[in-house]
Design a protein around this nucleic acid. Sequence first.
DNA 1: ATCAATGTTCGGTAATGCCGAACGGCCGTC
DNA 2: GACGGCCGTTCGGCATTACCGAACATTGAT
Lengths: 253, 253
Amino acid sequence: MPATVQSIERAAAILRLLGGGSRHLPLGEIAHSLDLAKGTTHGILRTLQHVGFVEQDRVSGHYQLGAGLVRPGAGYLDPNELRSHAINWADPLAARTGEAVRVGTVLDGRVLVVHHVFRPDDTFQTLDVGTLLPIHATALGKVLLAYRSAGVAPPADLDRFTRRTVRTPHGLAAEVVRVRDAGWGYEVEEMTPGNASVAAPIRGPGGLVVGAVGTSGLVERICDRRYHPHPHLVALVRETARAISRELGDGRH
Amino acid sequence: MPATVQSIERAAAILRLLGGGSRHLPLGEIAHSLDLAKGTTHGILRTLQHVGFVEQDRVSGHYQLGAGLVRPGAGYLDPNELRSHAINWADPLAARTGEAVRVGTVLDGRVLVVHHVFRPDDTFQTLDVGTLLPIHATALGKVLLAYRSAGVAPPADLDRFTRRTVRTPHGLAAEVVRVRDAGWGYEVEEMTPGNASVAAPIRGPGGLVVGAVGTSGLVERICDRRYHPHPHLVALVRETARAISRELGDGRH
DNA sequence: ATCAATGTTCGGTAATGCCGAACGGCCGTC
DNA sequence: GACGGCCGTTCGGCATTACCGAACATTGAT
C-alpha cells in the first residue's frame, strides 16, 4: 500500500476523534491527542470547517462534528450561498453580453434556477427564479449533468419540447462527453424555438461542481451562421463561472 | 479565510460526490468530474479507503462510500485487526522482558483486553482476553484515557482497589497530563497489591490512538527502588508500541 | 483481434502543507 | 487591578509533500 496522503489521514483521525466521544473538543486537546502542532491542526480544522464536516462553537471556540457529514441529500453548498456569491458576477455578465443570465443548481434531477438577471432591454420578461428546468434540454442542465454535481437522477423521462430536443439517452451521453471535454455546454432550440443558451460549471471547494451559470437569448444573437455560439460569448460565460468558483473556494483558478 | 488544505478539500469533494447520487462511481468519472488527474484521484481514494471512508467493489473496481463514515461508536480499527497486527510484536516483547504482555483498547469506558501473552515461566496464569479492566487503575487504561482514543466515557465511578488506587478525578487528570507529556504511562499497586504495569499508546493512521500495549508483573521486577519503572523496560514497551503503530499505518515513526 | 474501458504504478518537480514561535483575547486567580 | 494560563489564530521559512502525466496491467465489449 505505497504512499497514502497523510494530510487526509490526519483529517480522518480528527473526525474520528470528534465522533468518538466528547464530540466537543478544544483545538489544543485535538493537537495533543494526535501529536500534531497546533498550527497544523488548526489548518486541517479550518479546512474541515470550510467543507462543513466540523463546526465551531462560537462562544467556546471548541470544535465538533458538523451537519455536512451525513448527506441530507443536498450538496454542502446550499442554494442561498450559491446565489449570494453569484449575484455579483451575474449582473456584469448580463451587461457585457446584452443577454439574460441564469444561475442554477441541481434539485431532484432537474435544474433549479436560483438567480435570474433580465436581458438589459425593455422587453417584457418573466422572472423565473425558483423555476425547475429540464436537465436535458438546457445548457445549464447539460453542464450540471456532465459533472454530476449532486442529485444526479439519471434522466428517465426525456420530454420532447421542440424538433431539436435530444431524444435518446445515447445522444444525451454524447452531449455529456462533449461538455466534459470542452468545459462548457450549449443548446440551440432544444427547449424553446428561436432560443439558444450557453453555460459553464461553477465549482466549489475541492473542485466539486455545485452549480452552473449561463446566458440565453435569441438564436441569431447567441450563435453564428453555423449555429455555434460566438466564441467571445463562451469566453465571457466561462470567465464568469471561474470568478464565482474562485469566490466559492475553488483554489485552482 | 487564508489558506486551506486543498488535499482535504478534494477528499471532501469526492465524498460528497459519492454520497450525492450514484454512490457507485468509477475512478475515471470521479477524476473527470473534479478535473483532477487520475493518479491524484487514485491516491486520495486509496487514503480514504485506508481510513474506511470509502470502499471498493472488488469485481467492478468502482468506489462507494464506506461504513466508517457514520460512526458506529467504535473507532475505524476493529479489535480483531488490532489484535492481528499486535500479535507479532507482543511475543518478542514478552520474551525480552520476561513479563506478561497485554494489548487493549477502549470499550464503553473500560479497557478491553484483546491480546494476552503469558509471562514466560511455568507459573499458573489465567488468560484474560476479553476481560474488561478499569480505566483508571491500569497502565493501559491511563494511556488510553490520556489520548482519548475512542469511547472516552469520562470515568464517573472510580472504584478503589488498593490503598494506592487513584481516587479523585483531580488526581486522575494529573496522571493524564503526565502520560501525555511522557508518551507512556505506568501504575504501581493501584489495581493489585504487589503488581505494577507499564504501557504505551498504539497509533493508527493519522496518529489517532487506537489501543495500547504494556507489560505487567511483580513490583520488584518492574520497578526500581524508588518505585519507578526500569528505563530499559519502558524503552522496550515504547518500541513495541511504535512497531505496531507503524504496521497499522502511522507514518511518522 | 482490436479497442476502449477499468484501476494501478512510477519518477520528477514545484508547489504544498507542515512546523514552531509569536500574537491577541478571554477568563480565572492572586 | 494586574497577572498568568489557556483559548484560537497568524505568519514566515524550509523541506516534505502530494501532485501531475504518461506508461502499465487487466478486463470486457465490439
